[in-house]
Design a protein around this nucleic acid. Structure first.
Lengths: 250, 250
DNA sequence: ATTTAAACGTGCTATTTATCACATTTTATC
DNA sequence: GATAAAATGTGATAAATAGCACGTTTAAAT
């Protein structure tokens, strides 16, 4: 393994910044096809400012993008791929807070707080991200009210989503929670009844807040009952109505 | 019970607005001693604008301020007293999301989303709030970047706090969760080792996500072990170190 | 002050779910 | 493609916690 690979594995942001500096900018933010909806309200001059203070980078599956506890100088915008946001709990048990899909800023709440990353971010697939200088980002918020508003909408949506998951976990039993997670993947993440999850059963369990064995068992049960069709990490939801029922009943 | 009392009990915002209209404004926002830290960045003209489009109202203990699912035309700023933010889960089980103390806007995330209140808010004590017209509020965010930034900080802090509670609930067992809640009250809400909670054991359990009986039992255990001194709803934390230890170990 | 209702504490039991152990399958590596 | 390593599935068991029942205390209403 190369040194650069190692640095990415362990989420060494110092190196990642160096790497960015050395990485030639190939395209302009003006031409970027995947810029955030918030960026739509920026003026041409503001976009150029972002252009001069941002850098595109990619990570490989399994890489750690950010480590909880680390300090931040840049905000990260996810341009493609899936990322898990997680924390280590007592006994190094990993709690996955959410699966994040493209076109999302990572860890906005941390940025407006103490600038310490409260969560870790790991790449579930090969991904591309954009690093944007935090001072520039903050400047844009203060000088462009519409941009501020869009970011506020984004943070708010995130907050509500997470509340929803919180409710699911504290009020529902194992079956209901697994059902919720499956519905979430099919509706929000993949927008399809068939999908292949890029993470292990253990990670699924860490997301739902149950044990690996329980996750396996519930999935098998759903498979036997004809609600799902399982094949490794590929999941097909055969009976969404019944799944919704299970979610609803807790 | 008077009609007005009934309306307050059930959180009838229609009536509450009428009530506000009829209620003479006694003081100006300029002189208000409890305005939000965000308001500190407003210009005099902006404060006057808020002044003309806001109204102070009070609620009695037990009143419902807002009902989940209702639409909003005003944002509510809590000037004094404690409020619970909650949702009804399957089987009408109440999940309390957080206890909110004064100098806080209620339900900001809902306002920047679909304008539907996702949670209910109930007064745990007699409280005073300020209703501010939502359009004016949004206008201020767009035209005053510093104000937007402060609101963003507020929403972010809230989001992080709730993530913290989420982690506590999904990773920790009953004892750890109760310990967390007690530490939260003493450090964040009351800033004192002795405090009197203005809510029942059932509500405490609903906040922690456990049964009433379990809450009672854990508190009794802590009392017997000399960690707490209990007397009805008055709680004295005698041994904060040990409590911290219990929280840490899950 | 008396009555009524709500909140609280506690033993017992049932249920849920984690944990352990180990067989089996899949994936990665050279 | 052989071998090692990681991930997965499944039964048995233990631990944690909810639910129930009921007696007691506290608070509210008239």
């Amino acid at each position: 393994m190369y040194f650069s690979d190692l640095c990415r594995k362990i989420g060494d942001s110092q190196f990642i910044r160096m790497y960015q500096e050395s990485n030639k900018k190939i395209s302009s933010c003006r031409d970027c096809k995947v810029k955030s909806c918030a960026a739509a309200v920026l003026h041409a001059a503001e976009i150029d400012l972002v252009n001069e203070n941002s850098r595109e980078t990619s990570f490989k599956k399994g890489d750690i993008i950010l480590h909880e506890g680390s300090m931040t100088s840049h905000i990260i915008y996810l341009k493609s791929g899936l990322v898990k946001e997680y924390q280590k709990g007592p006994g190094d048990k990993e709690q996955i807070l959410q699966i994040i899909k493209k076109y999302t800023y990572l860890g906005l709440p941390s940025l407006f707080g103490d600038r310490v990353n409260h969560y870790s971010y790991g790449a579930l697939e090969d991904i591309t991200v954009c690093y944007i200088d935090l001072n520039i980002f903050n400047q844009l918020i203060r000088q462009n009210g519409n941009f501020a508003f869009e970011i506020l909408v984004s943070v708010s949506r995130d907050s509500l989503n997470n509340f929803h998951r919180f409710m699911s976990q504290s009020q529902k039993k194992t079956y209901g929670r697994v059902a919720d997670a499956l519905i979430y993947f099919s509706r929000i993440i993949y927008e399809n009844d068939v999908f292949e999850i890029p993470f292990s059963r253990q990670e699924l369990a860490d997301l739902i807040g149950i044990s690996r064995e329980s996750a396996t068992r519930v999935l098998s049960k759903f498979n036997d009952d004809g609600i799902l069709r399982l094949s490794g990490r590929t999941i097909e939801i055969v009976n969404p109505e019944l799944l919704g029922q299970i979610s609803k009943n807790g």
